[in-house]
Amino acid sequence: MTSGGIRRSFTAAAALALASFGSVALAAPGPWQLNMERGASTWSPVAYHLNNISLAVCTVIGVLVFGAMFVAMFRFRKSRGAVAEKWSHNTMVEVIWTTIPVLILITLAYLATGGLTSWADTTGSQMTVKVTGYQWKWRYDYVDYMGKSIDKVGFMSKLDTQSDQTRQLGSGMDPFAVKVGDESTYLLNVDKPLVVPVDTKIRFVITSGDVIHSWWVPATGWKIDAIPGIINAAWANFTTPGTYRGQCAELCGQDHGFMPIVVVVKSKADFAKWLAEQETQSTAPAATPQTAQVATPAGGKQG
């Protein structure tokens, strides 16, 4: 099984490499992925670039400092006959190596402050979605779209059945077999995803019904905590249609690892069609399947 796993990973890695050269936005983590994804929203490159820049800065400083250290370790060895010098102070170099880091930090702080300010600006949104975390599922309520308020479009979103069966202790099922098409979706798929339109500034208002959760889709470039009694706001504007996967990022109890988030980004026309369907469905009297979904996960899993 393991060798199969390795073979599978290599094929997946090759596919991933191809995909990234083809400049298709990453929708889900890939095997051997080394760096943060660029994301698929207008803001997410901010986090990505800041990550790359700070990593580069740290690498350069690291090479210099560790380089000096290794030179010292080779040049000033007692076994090479080095005799210890007596000095223990040099004001000049001390001033230099205090000032240079300060300058680097000011640059980084400048970049980060700009990115942070644009993140915090949730004004001018064209759509509002309310996200509520529960142990251990998410609820999405559509509040308004293009200035029109939406009634009664809201649903629970929880781990898909295939992942849920596979993840049971001693299930004997292969996590590698959980797939949608070619994509491995083990623990990253839900029964009913959040559907949103592309090229629309979406305001998410996020809260919780019980303990603290955190709503995180890496493609948006951010995560924010869902806290009972507090409503947090954040925004995303997706640039590419696709399926984007994420997970709860704040420990919220035994099934914390099993409450994924899936966002399906559709073209505006497709989204309008989907929304109309949802609205007619919700006005129809018997919405039984949804209530059934809500009720099931609670039983028999209490730690």
Partner: peptide
């Protein structure tokens, strides 16, 4: 480091197969 950058949250007992190698 790589796992975190690729998107694996802390404190989870199980994970997607993409995180298997590391």
């Amino acid at each position: 480091h790589f796992l975190g950058l690729a998107g694996m949250p802390r404190r989870i007992p199980d994970y997607n197969v993409a995180f298997a190698n590391f």
